[in-house]
Deep mutational scan, measured.
Amino acid sequence: NQASVVANQLIPINTALTLVMMRSEVVTPVGIPAEDIPRLVSMQVSRAVPLGTTLMPDMVKGYA
């Protein structure tokens, strides 16, 4: 089972991601792979992401 990136806190719209905002977790459906966490740092979210939400490619500007 592949771990995905999950929000560790509420991430407001247009916030630049930092390591403390993200954790890896095995979830369904699968989201952005956990190994991409270093690449996500400083990228902005395109919408508010609630705590515990799996990050999907369309939620991060410039990821897809």
Rank of each mutant, 00 (worst) to 15 (best):
N1V: 15
Q2T: 12
A3N: 15
A3Q: 13
S4I: 02
S4L: 02
V5M: 02
V5P: 01
V5E: 01
V6K: 04
V6N: 01
V6W: 02
V6C: 04
A7D: 01
A7V: 09
N8Y: 05
N8V: 10
N8I: 08
Q9G: 05
Q9F: 12
Q9I: 14
L10D: 14
I11V: 06
P12G: 08
P12H: 06
I13A: 11
I13P: 09
N14E: 09
T15V: 09
L17N: 00
L17G: 00
T18R: 07
T18L: 04
L19F: 15
L19T: 09
M21G: 02
M22Y: 02
M22E: 00
R23S: 06
R23Q: 10
S24E: 08
S24H: 09
E25S: 09
E25Q: 07
E25C: 06
V26S: 15
V27W: 03
T28Y: 13
P29E: 11
V30M: 14
V30E: 15
G31E: 01
I32S: 01
A34G: 15
E35D: 11
D36Y: 11
D36V: 09
I37Q: 06
P38A: 12
R39T: 08
R39F: 11
R39H: 10
R39V: 09
L40K: 00
V41C: 06
S42I: 03
S42H: 06
M43D: 03
M43C: 06
Q44M: 10
V45G: 01
R47C: 04
A48T: 10
V49C: 15
V49S: 02
P50D: 15
L51I: 15
L51A: 15
L51V: 15
L51D: 15
G52F: 05
T53L: 13
T54V: 10
T54H: 03
M56T: 13
M56D: 04
M56Q: 09
P57L: 04
P57E: 12
D58L: 08
M59G: 04
M59L: 05
M59I: 06
V60Y: 01
K61V: 14
G62T: 05
G62E: 08
G62S: 11
Y63E: 03
Y63M: 05
